[in-house]
Design a protein around this nucleic acid. Structure first.
Lengths: 212, 212
DNA sequence: ATGCCAAGTGCTACTCGGTGCCAGTTTGCT
DNA sequence: AGCAAACTGGCACCGAGTAGCACTTGGCAT
């Protein structure tokens, strides 16, 4: 998911498997023993990957911790053109695309996503790293919108604002989703999608909120 | 700005002066030689502060780099109760409070703020760190709103969305402000405030943007 | 099959941000 | 003056991330 144009299949399978192994080892370990207590060296040891390769597969320790969540955004970025092919309010288009991507995540995604989300809620540094990917997403959307709606002034700013709302809605949804008592074992992507839809549907009205 | 309830004045003056010295040395150095090329050790050397103290004054290298911008949010957080005393649409209240804080920044703030903003636009890691403080702000606002509007369901989510818009608007404003050709020497806080007001005034309409 | 080439891998050693520790100093208060 | 608590700086240390390089391995043309 980082950048492996590579050849085609066999090699990239190995890479994908190593990545997967690292994530499977790391997230439970983070949850049990704490993010800082689990060192990259130890993880590499466990997953039988050299430290050098670790940093080829992931942008860093935080990127590893956020893999499940980040994959959503990265997939969305990759498929942006298709997603923006629809018409209608941008916010709704993005919401639909987001739901779409989440529904397409590989089986078992929920379990790791919950761990990832909890980690992100606990550790501000990880949280910040997560926003980086969202920022990249925003940038892509802004570029695409400006290209499409060239001429309409302020399209740039509008796109940025809509993305901010989409991201905030997503974060809020994930937060609620993950905070269910036994989300670790029972949380489903359908629930998350419902939450997400609800968050984003409520967004326009939210802007009207007043202080008495 | 970190946590010095301390005694009262003499000691905190020294601290403030050391902090100021570090910022004054660091930001130009970052701009000239690049963020990564300037090490914390070198900075401490220049500003005659021990590395140990550096990390007592700042949350890290990124925090130092973002001091001017972060100070705005931190001040706003500190004065939140007063800011939220007004009535009207939350977004407008926040916009007014933000403008207010910026106008109260110490003289010479612009010069450093521009450097800080450029750095943030260039280096994603710094950018992410900046969002951390905004996130803290959001959390405070959410708490305050929930406390005030307890009962109205979804106040939580609404507050979060409004904050996201405020933050995005602020970021966009700072970005435009800083990207003026000779902003380093001529940018004024009045210009920034105007941009900020414009961004946030346009926000509600931005949500309506549609794809054709 | 075979054999070449590029891409990927693992090692060692390093840099640098950040922290724990502790003894020494300063400050506020009485 | 004198005490306790807060602050300081120096040092050693940890862990994330990188550089360089020799080596393996998969892909592919023949």
């Amino acid at each position: 998911m980082t950048t492996q144009p590579a050849t085609g299949t066999l090699r990239s399978r190995r890479i994908a498997r190593s990545r997967q192994r690292l994530v499977e080892v790391a997230l439970p370990a983070f949850a049990e023993r704490g993010y800082d207590a689990v060192t990259v060296d130890w993880l590499c040891d466990q997953a039988e990957v050299s430290k050098r390769s670790f940093f080829r597969y992931f942008d860093g320790k935080e990127d590893l911790a956020l893999t499940p969540l980040n994959d959503v955004w990265r997939t969305l970025i990759a498929d942006l053109d298709a997603a923006l092919a629809r018409s209608g309010p941008l916010l709704e288009v993005l919401a639909a695309a987001l739901v779409d991507v989440i529904e397409r995540m590989p089986p078992g995604w929920e379990r790791l996503a919950v761990l990832s989300a909890r980690l992100s809620g606990t550790n501000p540094v990880i949280d910040a790293a997560g926003m980086l990917v969202c920022e990249r997403f925003t940038q892509q959307v802004v570029d695409a919108i400006v290209a499409r709606l060239s001429g309409s002034s302020g399209a740039d700013l509008s796109a940025r604002i809509v993305c901010a709302v989409a991201v905030a809605g997503h974060r809020a949804a994930v937060d609620t989703w993950q905070s269910a008592p036994d989300a670790g074992t029972t949380a489903t992507r359908a629930e998350l999608c419902a939450l997400l839809r609800a968050s984003l549907a409520a967004a326009p009205a939210a802007l009207e909120i007043r202080l008495p």
